[in-house]
Amino acid sequence: MKSSEGSRSWSIGEVAERFGIATHVLRHWESVGLLHPSREGGSRRRYEKPDVYAVAMILRAKEAGFGLDDIREMFDTDDPVRRTAILGRHRNALAVRIAQAQASLALIDCGLDCDHDDIASCPHFHAAIEARIGALAPW
């Protein structure tokens, strides 16, 4: 369907299918103020390009660990200091998660490369596990 400006618009089902999410997720995001699709005839939602970009931004932010409240706050604020604070907080948390994932990947790679019959007897595997134990607070 075309909008009044002649640009393409999409139904809620088309947008949900495009992103691999359920339509109720889009409705929920609308109910919490993250999305504002236009209404066709007052009832059917129509998503235009800015709405589709908003869905992509929400999904990317969620993948980075943002909650819906922080996403809404970033969308709503015109204050760059406030937005920078939100982004900084999440950047630090994401950096920690990335480091943990990299350490986990290294442990898996160690296990895959191990020639020992029992991985628990592998010195390289022990070193990777001891590195994790060392990351804990002192006993």
Rank of each mutant, 00 (worst) to 15 (best):
G65I: 05
A101R: 03
F66T: 07
V32S: 04
K49M: 14
E17D: 09
R39V: 02
V52S: 11
Q102T: 02
E48F: 00
G42I: 01
I108L: 14
C110F: 03
R82A: 13
E73Y: 01
V55A: 08
V81T: 14
L112Y: 03
I58V: 10
S38V: 14
Y53G: 07
D69T: 11
I108F: 03
G65F: 07
V55Q: 09
D118S: 03
D113K: 10
R89L: 13
D78F: 12
H24N: 11
S31P: 00
F75I: 05
D109R: 11
E48L: 12
R27N: 01
V52W: 04
P123M: 06
D76T: 14
E30N: 01
A56Q: 08
L68F: 09
K49N: 07
Q100D: 15
T84Y: 12
A99L: 12
K62P: 07
I98R: 12
R27I: 05
S121A: 10
V96D: 07
E48V: 13
D109P: 03
A106D: 11
A61M: 06
A56C: 06
A64N: 12
T77Y: 04
E48D: 06
E40M: 08
A120T: 15
E48P: 02
V55K: 03
R89Q: 11
D78R: 15
F75L: 12
C110D: 06
D118C: 02
E48A: 13
S104V: 14
P123N: 09
L26C: 00
H116F: 10
C114Q: 02
H24P: 00
P37F: 00
